[in-house]
Simulated assay, not measured.
Amino acid sequence: MVSTGRNLLKKMYYYRAMYLLLLPGLAYITLFKYVPMAGIMLAFKEYNVVTGIWDSPWNGFANFERFFQGSYFWPIMRNTILISLYKLLFGFPAPIILALLLNEVRVNWFKRIVQTLTYLPHFLSWVIVYGILMAFLAPNEGLLNVLLKLFGFEAVPFLTAPEWIRTLLVSTDIWKDAGWGAILYLAALANIDPSLYEAAIIDGAGRRRQLWHVTLPGIRSVVILMLILKLSHILDVGFDQVFMMSNIFNQEKSDIIDTWVYRVGLQEMRFGVATAVGMFKAVIGFILVLTANKVAKKWDGQIW
C-alpha cells in the first residue's frame, strides 16, 4: 500500500508540468460547476432573502408541486419539448449533411471559403442575429416584407405571429450552428481509411454506395455520441435565442422552461421554485443520457 502511494507520488512529480496545466481547468470546474451544486437545497426550502439559505425553513417537495400543478406547466412543457424535437429532427442532421457535402468538394479554395462562411455565424450573439432578422423580417420596413408589398402581397408579421416563431427558432439555430458542428464531422471523415474507398471502387461501388457503405459507417460512432449529448439537453432549447425572439404576441408558442424560470426566479424572486425546476431538468437530462447510451451500446457496441 505504501509502495503504491510512493509510485503515485513519483508519477505525479514526473508529470508535474501536466498537472500544473490541469489546475486552471480543474479550478474552473470546481468553482463554477461543483460548488454551486450546494444551492440545490433551495429546491427543498421556503427561501427567504432576509433569513438566508441556511435559516430558511424546509418545505419538502412543495416547490416541485407548485411547478407541476400550475396552469403554466403543460403549455411551457409542450413548447419546450416541441421546439427541442424540431431542432433535433431538422437541426441535428444539418451539420452531418453539410460535412458530407464539403467532403465531396475537390476544389480546396472553394471548400475553405464555404466552410469559413458557414461557421462564422456561430460567433455572432443572438442579439446580433435578432438584429439581422429585424432588418429582413420587420413587419413594415423589413426587406422581405418590402418585396412582398412591392409585388402586391400583404406584409407577413414573421416576428410577432405565433405560427412563425417555431420556424424562426429552428431555422436560425441551423443557420448559426450547422457550420460549426460540421467541423467535428469533417474531422471524423478525415480519419476514415482511404483504402476502404479504394476497395469499394475495385468492387464497383459508385459515389452513393461509397457514401452508404464506407462514409456513414465511418462516422457512425461520432453521430451516435453527438446524438446522446443532444438528448441530454433536450429540455435546454436555448434561453438566449428564445428570450430575444419571444414577445407578448408569440409567447403562447415560444414560452419555454428557461424563460419561465427567468421570470419566476429573477423577476418574482421565487428562487426555490426556480431551483426545483432546474433540478427537474437535470434529472430528466441524466435519465435521457443513460437511456440513450444504453440503447446505443446495444445497437453499435460501446462507443466510449
Rank of each mutant, 00 (worst) to 15 (best):
S171K: 08
I219C: 04
G152K: 04
A155R: 07
L159Q: 08
Y185H: 01
N191V: 14
E154N: 13
A190H: 03
T160I: 08
E198I: 03
A187N: 05
T160A: 12
I165A: 07
H213F: 11
E154L: 07
D173H: 11
P217G: 07
L184D: 09
A188H: 02
L159Y: 00
F153E: 14
D193M: 02
A155H: 02
E163R: 12
I219H: 04
A187T: 07
K176F: 02
A187S: 13
E163V: 09
I219N: 00
L184M: 12
D193F: 03
D203R: 06
R209D: 11
L186D: 02
L189G: 04
W212T: 11
I165G: 03
W212R: 13
G218L: 04
I202R: 05
A161W: 00
D203G: 11
D173C: 10
A161V: 03
A161G: 10
V222W: 05
P217F: 06
W164E: 01
T167N: 15
A182V: 02
Y185E: 10
G181Q: 00
G181M: 00
A205E: 04
W212Q: 13
I183G: 07
Y185S: 02
I192K: 05
P162S: 08
A182R: 01
W212G: 08
V214P: 11
P194R: 06
Q210D: 12
A178Q: 10
A182I: 01
G181F: 00
S221K: 14
L211C: 12
P162L: 07
T172S: 13
